[in-house]
Structures are given as structure tokens and as C-alpha cells.
């Protein structure tokens, strides 16, 4: 193309030699400061290479005078954030959990903190939406095995469930009625029929009638004569629509034959009290949290002091 280079008459400037449909481009000289900015970028780059990690080596890169690294930067940010959050953690630990509802702002901060901590420590079993799965309770609903007020949730978190080496842990054990030969398979089938009638999954039948007797003898101790369960023993309510291991015949037969032994770690050992309190607040906030029983007994005055939050917390749906 260079052979087409020519000098443009009116401007006296050479063209670059390209032509598009009669339109040509002038090869106007660049302003000199343009070159200076180019040199400036080179100097900048040299400084950058000296100060920051830049040249790749076999396993890493040159470190740079500043010793900057993205991991180090991250650690610094985390540390700074931790420091910022320290007062909240302090306030949280020093507040009586029964009065937490009285400070809506602190409660909200606890919930947000719990939301993050949950994603680290709890989602493995309970799922990222805290909806659980067979054997792992859904924390969004209004059915609680061991109690659903702030205090009870915190207790469960600290001491865990079925940690045999720990005295305060939540503990109970259902017998393996089939495996240990307490009941015969036929009896278990009858019992399954009866239990299913409790939550309306099956209509009453002769088998269920036989199962009722077996229930009174073997199960009512823990699950109560009407099957409503007991929170002291973590014995589930068999009459509601929610079940941890499933209410179909196969699952129920399995549960009665072999028993179940759901375990939750005792987080008191692993997490600091503030984080546990945050987790309790978060789990409680998911929609099924219950009112603290003690607060229902206190006088109106105290309630007013504690604020409206106390009355509003949870769904208060125990009766249903």
C-alpha cells in the first residue's frame, strides 16, 4: 500500500497510504507530549515490577519490595473486619439471651453474623437454605425436637445432640425394637399402621387397632399416650405433618426395627460463645422460632421494657 502514499495538497501532510472509497488518512505527526506519556508508562511499569510481585518464577513470582500478596491483603481485611465486629461480639456475649429481643439492633446484627457462620459450619448437614433433608432437621419449620426458643436453640448448639462423652448433651435413645427382638416383624407392621393413622397418613384398620395396644406398651413412655412426643427426650411429635425420617411404611419400619441415632456436634467446644449466640439468633429467625417460655410469665411492665420484638418473635405455633 505504501506506493499509494502521497502528499496531501492543502495540508502538505503525507498520507498513510490507505484509501477507503476515496477517503484517505493523513499521517499527521503525533504531539511530542504523547511520547512523554509513553515514557512515563515505562517508568511506571519499572516501579511496579520492583514494588509488586511481577516476574513469574518456577513455583511463585518475585515478591516485590512491598511484599504484597492477595492472600495477605485478604488476611488484613479479615483482621480489620474482626476488629470492627469485636464490640458487637462483646455486647452479644454480655447480654442475657432472654433479653436479646429487647435490643432489636443487636439481634439483627446477631442474625446477620449467624447467617455467615451458618454457611461455614452448618450447611454441610442442614443445607444452605437450612431446609435439611431426611435425617437432618429443617430449621425453617415450626416443629422442634428439642425446643425452638432462643435459649433452647443455643443450648442445643453448645452441647450438641448425642455426644456420649459429654454430660450436658441432649440425649435419648430409641430402642431398636426389631433388631433387638423386642417386637416381631408382624407387630412392627401393625405399629407402623397405627403410627401412620396418627398423622392421617392411613385410615384406621384392624392392624392399626392392634398397633394401638403395642404403642401404649412400648412407645407412649417417650412419645406420649397421644403420640405428641416430648421435647425433654427429643421424642418427635408423631401427629403433625413433619417427620425427620419419613412417614412412609418403609422408612417407619426401618426406624422402629433399627432405631435412629441422629448426632449433632457440640459446637461449644469448637466455636466461641458469640458465634454460637449468632447462630442461635439466625436459626431462630428463619421463620419457626418460638417465644421464650419464661417471657410469657413476666409481667406486662417487663414486656414493655423488653419491647415489642419479644411479642413478635417466632410464630408461637406450638398448639397447632
Amino acid at each position: 500500500m505504501s506506493e499509494k502514499k502521497r502528499v496531501d495538497e492543502p495540508t502538505g501532510t503525507e498520507t498513510v497510504g490507505h484509501e477507503w472509497d476515496g477517503i484517505e488518512e493523513l499521517d499527521t505527526p503525533m504531539p511530542r507530549w504523547w511520547v512523554w506519556t509513553f515514557y512515563a508508562t515505562i517508568i511506571w511499569a519499572i516501579g511496579y515490577v520492583i514494588l509488586y510481585p511481577a516476574i513469574p518464577l518456577v513455583n511463585s513470582a518475585t515478591e516485590g519490595v512491598f511484599g504484597w500478596s492477595s492472600r495477605g491483603d485478604y488476611a488484613m481485611q479479615v483482621a480489620a473486619r474482626e476488629k470492627e465486629l469485636e464490640p458487637i461480639r462483646q455486647a452479644l456475649v454480655s447480654t442475657d439471651i432472654r433479653k436479646l429481643n429487647g435490643s432489636p439492633e443487636l439481634l439483627q446484627q446477631a442474625i446477620e453474623g449467624g447467617r455467615s457462620a451458618f454457611k461455614v459450619h452448618c450447611v454441610q448437614c442442614h443445607g444452605s437454605g437450612a431446609a435439611g433433608s431426611a435425617g437432618y432437621p429443617n430449621l425453617n419449620d415450626d416443629d422442634w425436637l428439642w425446643g425452638g426458643d432462643l435459649e433452647a436453640i443455643e443450648y442445643t448448639l453448645i452441647h450438641g445432640i448425642r455426644n456420649p462423652d459429654h454430660d450436658n448433651t441432649r440425649f435419648s435413645q430409641m430402642p431398636a425394637f426389631g433388631r433387638d427382638g423386642i417386637l416381631q416383624p408382624g407387630q412392627i407392621a401393625d405399629l407402623v399402621s397405627f403410627v401412620r393413622t396418627l398423622s392421617g397418613k392411613e385410615k384406621s384398620s384392624a392392624a392399626a387397632g392392634r398397633g394401638a395396644g403395642l404403642f401404649a406398651e412400648n412407645c407412649a413412655v417417650c412419645h406420649g399416650p397421644d403420640g405428641k412426643g416430648s421435647r425433654d427426650l427429643g421424642a418427635p411429635n408423631l401427629t403433625d405433618a413433619i417427620s425427620l425420617y419419613g412417614l412412609d411404611r418403609a422408612s417407619l419400619t426401618n426406624t422402629i426395627t433399627n432405631s435412629r441415632y441422629g448426632v449433632m456436634p457440640r459446637w461449644g467446644q469448637r466455636l466461641d460463645p458469640a458465634t454460637i449466640r449468632m447462630l442461635a439468633a439466625y436459626v431462630h429467625s428463619l421463620g419457626g422460632g418460638e417465644t421464650l417460655p419464661a417471657l410469657e410469665d413476666v409481667s406486662e411492665d417487663t414486656l414493655d421494657q423488653v419491647g415489642d420484638g419479644a411479642r413478635n418473635i417466632g410464630t408461637g405455633n406450638e398448639q397447632s
Binding site: 437454605g129 419449620d141 415450626d142 403433625d240 405433618a241 413433619i242
Partner: peptide, 18 residues
């Protein structure tokens, strides 16, 4: 609409969405 969980089974047989 909350997607995780999409719905929550309540004890009384109702379903809750958030």
C-alpha cells in the same frame, strides 16, 4: 420469592412460602 427453601412444610399441614 425465596428459592432456598422454595417452601416449608408446617406442622399443621399448611405450607409456608417466604
Amino acid at each position: 420469592h425465596d428459592r432456598n427453601p422454595v417452601y416449608v412444610q408446617l406442622a399443621d399441614g399448611h405450607v409456608r412460602n417466604s
